[in-house]
Every structure is written in C-alpha cells, then in structure tokens.
C-alpha cells in the first residue's frame, strides 16, 4: 500500500495585484485502493490542489507538505513526480505540435518505467486501451491533442492513466464538457485502471453525476481553500440535493 499525504498545505499564485492565497491549509490522506472525491464550488481551490500536486510552476507552496510514502513530493521536479507514481489527468490537456501520440506514449512509458516497454505487448496494450475508450485507431498517428475535441482530449488523458499505471491518479474535472456517453466511457476507463492495479484516486469535480459511475469512498467539500466538510458517499448525495449554498452562506 502507498500513501499520499497532504498536510496543512498553503498555496498562493502571483497576480497583478500581488500574491493571492488560494489554498489555506489543506490536509488530506489518500491510500492506494481508495477513491476520494473533492467537490466544491468554482474558485474553491480544487484545481489548484491538483496542479500543485503535479508541480505546475504557477503555484507557490508557502507552507505545508506533500509526501508520497514519506518522500517529499514538493522537492521533486515535475517529471520526477510522474516517475514516482503521480498522474494528473488535466482539465485542459495541452496540444503538443510535432509529436505523435504513438511516440509520446512510448516515450512517457519508457520514462516512467525506466525501461522501454516490450514492443509486442506495448502495441497490443495501446490498441486495446484505445478500443476500450472508443478512441479511433488513427489517433495514434496524430499529434498529441492537436485538433482533438474536448471529449477526445479527456479520453486520451484516461488512456494515459490506463497505460502508465500510476500509484495515484488525480482527475481534474475530467467530467467537464463530456456528454453522458463519453462520461460513461471515461469512467469505465478509470474503474478499469483502479481494478487493474493498486491505485488511489483523487477525483476532482464540480458535479455529482460522475459519482454515479465512479464510486467514492470519501467525499471532501472544498470551500474557499479549505476542506469545509468530509464524509462518505452519502455526502455527495446530500450535495446533489442541496448544492453548495449551505457552505457559501456560512462562508459569507
């Protein structure tokens, strides 16, 4: 079992008006085998948490710690974090010109595993994972995310999740912009990954609908950069009915 531990994390970004604190002391522990949903209104800091774990340079950690099995994640470079077993499925995947999906996937897999995957198995794995996510075979020859629709980009993120087999997957609003069919396909991919190998999932979402397909063990509600409430799956049901107003009223 692996553990991703976030302790009293404070994160700020630089704005034109100076430094602005987004996360104001977040504490969270995720073990492999668990699925945690982080929910909350827009601007509550959910995506900031995701990007900070991945090491996006825009976010400055002013205090607190993130450790993976006791190792200091904050001291690691972005690529080292990925190699250590963290994976961020991005809300807005980036188009990378000139690099084909095939080349990208193999290069990343090689970097993460520290050795090139066996060609025969790899090709088969990629094909079947693509088929499972209903991604056209011709995407393999296209440049990374270039000209992909929003839904296609999300599928490709989950494709990587399935192929790279991280210890912890952070899904940053993977459900946004997906229609019901695509949401189902993507959720099935996440579930396959979680069943296929030991993985912890941090599912960040604004809406509860993805929780019909990916069942959380724990639900954390983010409001204004802090965890305002925690609970089991039933908390999500309550949010479905009541929305976030209850928390916002308290905040105001």
């Amino acid at each position: 079992m692996s553990t991703l531990e976030i302790k009293d994390l404070h994160v700020s970004i630089d704005t034109e008006q100076g430094s602005k604190e987004i996360l104001k002391g977040v504490t969270l522990t995720i073990n492999t085998g668990e699925t945690h949903a982080i929910m909350g209104p827009n601007g509550s800091g959910k995506s900031t948490l995701a990007s900070t774990i991945a090491g996006h340079p825009r976010y400055n950690v002013t205090s607190g710690t993130i450790t993976l099995d006791g190792e200091d994640v904050l001291a690691m470079s972005v690529d080292a974090r990925a190699r250590a077993g963290l994976f961020l499925a991005m809300q807005y995947p980036v188009e990378v010109p000139g690099v084909t999906m095939t080349n990208f996937l193999r290069t990343a897999k090689t970097a993460i595993d520290g050795e090139a995957p066996s060609l025969r198995h790899w090709t088969k794995d990629v094909k079947s994972a693509m088929a499972g996510l209903k991604i056209d075979a011709d995407f393999a020859g296209r440049n990374v995310n270039e000209g992909f629709s929003g839904g296609e980009k999300k599928r490709v993120e989950i494709l990587q999740l399935e192929l790279f087999k991280p210890k912890f997957a952070i899904l940053d609003e993977t459900d946004s912009g997906l229609d019901v069919d695509a949401l189902k396909v993507v959720s099935e991919g996440v579930n396959r990954a979680a069943e296929g190998h030991e993985m912890g999932t941090l599912l960040i979402t604004h809406y509860t609908r993805i929780l019909r397909y990916i069942k959380p063990d724990f639900v954390h509600v983010f409001v204004d950069g802090r965890v305002a409430e925690q609970g089991g799956p039933d908390l999500a049901d309550r949010l479905e009915e009541e929305g976030y107003d209850r928390f916002l009223a308290v905040g105001a």
Partner: peptide, 21 residues
C-alpha cells in the same frame, strides 16, 4: 509542463517536439 508531467525530462521533451516538427 504537459510532457514533463508524464515523466519525460525537459531535455527529452524539447527534443521530442523539435524532432517531430
């Protein structure tokens, strides 16, 4: 950031893009 977040080091990431281009 995207390429590095997939475990690819900076040098390789840069080469990947230019070579492909």
């Amino acid at each position: 950031f995207y390429l590095m977040s997939r475990g690819i080091d900076e040098k390789t990431a840069r080469r990947l893009v230019v070579r492909g281009f």
